[in-house]
Design a protein around this nucleic acid. Structure first.
Lengths: 225, 225
DNA sequence: CCTACCGATCGGTAGG
DNA sequence: CCTACCGATCGGTAGG
């Protein structure tokens, strides 16, 4: 179990980089620019920062095992203060999840741009999904799985969003010249299941992501004869 | 982390607080009639019952989201009383996991018995894994995934056990006449990833399990030419 | 197997 | 964004 470094009244977490304005110092000002009032921008940035921190923790530990205090600590503030930025833990999770799906959809659509061969398109989508699932650096994190510890009402909303996302793959599979005895529905589900759980089986230092995507297509490729 | 011995027949509560049971009584008979003193068998049965209840809950909600009180309640006793039967929540989880892997290995080996064609063998193993993952009625439950909310020290022990289990599939894949440009390691990992997450994507009322197994083999089957 | 409890931790809030 | 706190719940224990 993690020994909590939860701050007592005496020792507080040190804030990373973003400290409140020090004594005599004005509020954060962009380097050469004009001073800004307590703008929406600052708050929005701070909020986005918190979302990314939370996303990373949720992805690492799951919903239940990530506490509000964990998130607050890494963001450099106290648990109660987090509620200045978020409404609740559940709302935070839902927002992260939806933003991640949206970003993922955009990335994949971009990766597909200009490609016409159906297998080539599928491979590009697979590669992009791998990158998304394995990249710990943004909101596009592996949070689509591991919904077991999420409260049911929250989960239902997420699954609906996810279904919409999967339309991309539904279309990709529909374009494939697959043998007639292959169930395209199951085919898509199996493929997505692989990709979504990538952070569970991927091992750094073995095959590169592009090689994995190529292998996946090699396996899943069946030409209608 | 200490791993409990696997066979449950001789397993006993760790704390022999009760007086010695009488002369070896036969197992408890539901409505049989004769009153019985408390024997090992009763305790072992009760313990096994608790393990199955806990397994089901862990599978449903994950480690973290399943409380000792949840388990106790469903077993019909109070939280504190559970510690007469188990040592800790962690030890309980590890024991369940190991027993499930052992049972799964046995079931698959049995399903393979008599089959010689490598593809037929792989398909039989896939089907058996599906049955195991989707059957909510025993210790062979879908608990091999979803390890994210499990404390790291526990998780490490489980992953080691799982690796041993995967040897079965390593052998099955080794026997396949696959094209040379397919990475057998990745091939096995992808296949297991599908099967292990089956309870995440399976939908009752669509394809039957046997049909799914057949489809999986249809997709994963590539003849060396 | 129960009663009665423990210290820790949880998500969240009031008021500044 | 902090201080100070709430009620609920957690895994676990002592003693019967």
């Amino acid at each position: 179990m993690k020994l909590s470094t939860l701050p007592s009244a005496a020792s507080r977490p040190t804030r990373p980089a973003r400290s409140k304005a020090g004594p005599g110092q004005a509020r954060a000002v962009p380097d050469g620019g004009k001073p800004q009032g307590p703008g929406h921008e600052d708050q929005a940035d701070r909020r986005h920062e918190i979302l990314e921190i939370a996303a990373e923790l949720f992805a690492e530990r799951g919903y239940r095992a990530t506490s509000i205090r964990d998130i607050a600590e890494r963001a450099g503030l106290l648990a109660g203060s987090l509620y200045y930025h978020i409404r609740s833990k559940e709302a935070l999770f839902v927002e992260i999840h939806n933003k991640a799906l949206e970003a993922a959809a955009l990335r994949i659509r971009t990766a597909l741009d200009g490609l016409t061969d159906p297998w080539e398109r599928l491979q590009a989508a697979c590669l992009e999904m791998l990158e998304i699932q394995l990249n710990p650096g943004s909101l596009t994190l592996p949070i689509m799985n591991n919904l077991r510890s999420v409260p049911v009402n929250v989960r239902d909303a997420l699954i609906q969003q996810r279904d919409a996302f999967e339309t991309i793959f539904r279309d990709l599979v529909a374009d494939l010249p697959l043998e007639a005895d292959i169930d395209k529905n199951l085919y898509r589900i199996l493929l997505l299941s692989l990709l979504n759980s990538a952070d569970g089986w991927f091992r750094e230092g073995r095959l590169a992501r592009a090689e994995i995507a190529a292998q996946i297509i090699r396996i899943f490729r069946h030409q209608k004869t």
